[in-house]
Design a protein around this nucleic acid. Structure first.
Ligand SMILES: [Mn+2]
Ligand SMILES: [Mn+2]
Ligand SMILES: [Mn+2]
Ligand SMILES: [Mn+2]
Lengths: 218, 218
DNA sequence: ATTAAAATTTAGACAAATCTAAAAATAGGT
DNA sequence: ACCTATTTTTAGATTTGTCTAAATTTTAAT
């Protein structure tokens, strides 16, 4: 497994949102910031190795082996992100770049020890689930804040956009995962929300609300 | 800096034992487990980048920049080794392979935080000194056990051979860094030693004695 | 000073991962 | 069904790091 192969598998997995299904050459090229012709070349190589299904012009999908491999890289990425935040005081907007490198370190023992050191975390700093060693996924029951009805209450559990600018914006506005949240009012005009977060009132644009995941109280 | 370039700089540094001086193409090739022709190619590239001095047939030596770069990689390697042993319970014979990968992770913040987490260690698990951020080296006053006179006393502080088989052998014989040691007798015939280690008598072959560093008591 | 051995470099090739430009296949609209 | 725009693939080139085999330079011995 080369680093590039691993990155392709991860990209294909993410584009399929975890579900199996054919992904287009162009979509992969865009996600990987490369050219479609490069994707075609790699598709052939990965198909050769039994990691993807590929038929000319028919798109690309992960085999079972490919899915397992992708999940193991995502597991490493997210565990390293937790490590960086919990043990080294990185902020949640700094970890992704470093984790992109650390996820390619080859040592099963290393990642198992990191997992244990962190007390087997279930979610990464952005609220994304950490696959288990055998590739099991524990997706949380969550929904976008923008999809919730007025007066609904819950807890912030994740972000959809995990780009540094968005995360820094959330920090600046004291919006953090784990915070309680209640929708006080929805503005029809621009779909902005008046919310109560940890006891404080706050106005939130639709753009923000559509990138924040909330676990609704029962 | 590519991974390969970094590995060449490290190899050149190690072959020079820290001192500046011209290293032969063949020596580098052997150390890197590659061919002399590949070394020549890389020598040209590194010279181009100002990291080594190189004149055809005249051998290769590090520039100041090259030395600084090599030291920063060695610093990372050794800090990661300490991390693996102290925080993740790796044994000293397991860490090198993983550190070979981790040393290439690019993040100044990461290695500084690891350094702080470990409380700024001065030596790695094999007794080798860890360069400071600005490339300062703190070589310990030590000598090979085989070079010490009879009745000399001291403390084990390092290994010359840090291959897994040797380290495992030391473990098996309860020889660890930090142990007190006294030479009771030297056998002229095979230069083996009768020693007292942490209160226990032990016989040690010349091969072992010539790979163990001891800090002599004053 | 010659000469043979050893070290080093050059020349040419290859694999991996990428690119550009051109060709081929597909999909959609009429 | 036909044409066109889009998508995808192919062909050929490039970069990095490596290799083998041949040529060159250095070294060290006579
Ligand atoms: Mn990430
Ligand atoms: Mn994440
Ligand atoms: Mn090491
Ligand atoms: Mn070491």
């Amino acid at each position: 497994m080369t680093r590039s192969e691993e990155n392709y598998l991860k990209a294909i997995f993410h584009l399929g949102n975890g579900e199996a299904g054919s992904i287009s050459t162009n979509a992969i090229a865009e996600q990987m910031d490369t050219k479609p012709s490069s994707v075609t070349d790699m598709a052939k190589k990965l198909a050769e190795k039994g990691l993807v299904h590929y038929k000319k012009y028919q798109g690309i999908s992960l085999t079972d082996t490919g899915t397992r491999t992708a999940l193991s890289i995502i597991r490493k990425h997210r565990l390293w992100e937790v490590f960086l935040v919990k043990k080294l005081d990185f902020t949640w907007d700094e970890v992704h770049e470093v984790a992109e490198q650390l996820e390619h370190i080859k040592s099963e023992k290393l990642i198992d020890k990191i997992d244990a050191l962190l007390d087997f975390p279930k979610y990464d700093p952005h609220g994304d689930p950490i696959p288990t060693k055998d590739g099991k996924f524990m997706e949380r029951d969550k929904q976008l804040l923008s999809d919730m009805p007025i007066h609904a209450q819950g807890v912030c559990v994740g972000v959809k956009d995990s780009s540094a600018p968005f995360l820094k914006f959330l920090d600046k506005n004291k919006i953090a995962l784990g915070n309680t949240i209640k929708i006080l009012d929805k503005e029809d005009f621009d779909q902005s929300l008046q919310i109560l977060m940890e006891g404080k009132e706050l106005r939130i644009s639709h753009q923000i609300a559509s990138n924040l995941y909330v676990k609704k109280n029962d």
